[in-house]
Design a protein around this nucleic acid. Structure first.
Lengths: 159, 159
DNA sequence: TGGCTTGGTAAGTAAAGCTTACGATCCTCG
DNA sequence: CGAGGATCGTAAGCTTTACTTACCAAGCCA
């Protein structure tokens, strides 16, 4: 039995895979000349998936800080791919929608992503992929719990 | 059957999990006051796992550019955790070793990592973890292949 | 109506990478 | 043996992705 290298732990593997994936995605969309970064693409997909939702909720869904999202949206809006429309019910909030201009880009990105992931998961059958998806979902949930419990500075400021 | 959200694809999940994991790791080692970043810790572990190896080889093993590694090693060396000893067989190369000072830190980091990963993989039994590990290894291999084939500028410069 | 909370953002910072360029050394082949 | 190319490490500078802190404006509530 071969020694289990410390560099093949789940943690290391996750780090490696995600770095490589980002690189691959980066190359594959910049090769397509789409003019968006992976992060922006991610935000765009999220916005398209939940149209008209306000920024704070998008940020929660993406698991990032509102400010981080705001920066992405700035770029996407600058490219004319999304628009911020003021929420009629809440003067502070802005609802985000994708523009028509984004449609072909979205189609394109979705295809690129699908192709890339097909290549990346080559060697896994449908069952294996589903199992992987489920495992990852479990990890994500655990991590999100850790996150919340790790920073309990929301309530109980004073006694 | 629920609609498969686009935000629950393997790609998105990997991105989420790795971001969250980095955050969790970050918090957990800065809480321990160890004074190294996750990337540096990763480099340190790799160095310890293959002592006396030269930088170029470490970089390959980590799947990063030599320059990126060099930066990490600068920091680690600044902290007195590693040393660069000139390779007696090759005047250009430097072999990297961990110092005695790094020993307790390494023990600590390993423990932190183990604890964290136990929490993160809660809900998976030993089999599930092994399956996950194997799947991820497959993905990493695929990605590394993609990488090489994606930039075939090494050979055949001239005809 | 006055005070907390919430939504968005300006500003600044940090980590983790990359590319490009370069000096120094090594290797190889004529 | 000597010159040209390959390889090793690294200085310099950039990008992406994310965070924190601080703030204003608008809503909510007592």
């Amino acid at each position: 039995m071969p020694v289990r290298l410390e560099t093949d732990t789940i943690g290391m593997l996750l780090t490696d895979v995600s770095r490589l994936l980002r690189g691959a995605f980066d190359r594959c969309i910049s090769a397509s000349g789409l003019g968006v970064t992976p992060g922006e693409a991610r935000a765009l997909i999220q916005v398209a998936a939940t149209e008209g939702i306000k920024q704070a909720d998008i940020a929660v869904k993406m698991g990032i800080e509102p400010m981080t999202l705001s920066t992405y949206l700035d770029r996407l809006q600058g490219l004319g791919l999304v628009e911020r429309v003021p929420d009629p019910c809440d003067g502070r909030a802005k609802n985000v929608v994708v523009t028509e201009k984004a449609d072909p880009l979205l189609t394109n990105i979705r295809k690129e992503v699908r192709d890339l992931m097909d290549q990346v998961t080559a060697g896994l059958d449908a069952e294996g992929r589903e199992a992987l998806r489920e495992s990852l979902k479990g990890l994500r949930e655990n991590l999100q719990l850790l996150d919340r419990s790790g920073s309990p500075e929301k309530k109980s400021i004073a006694e």
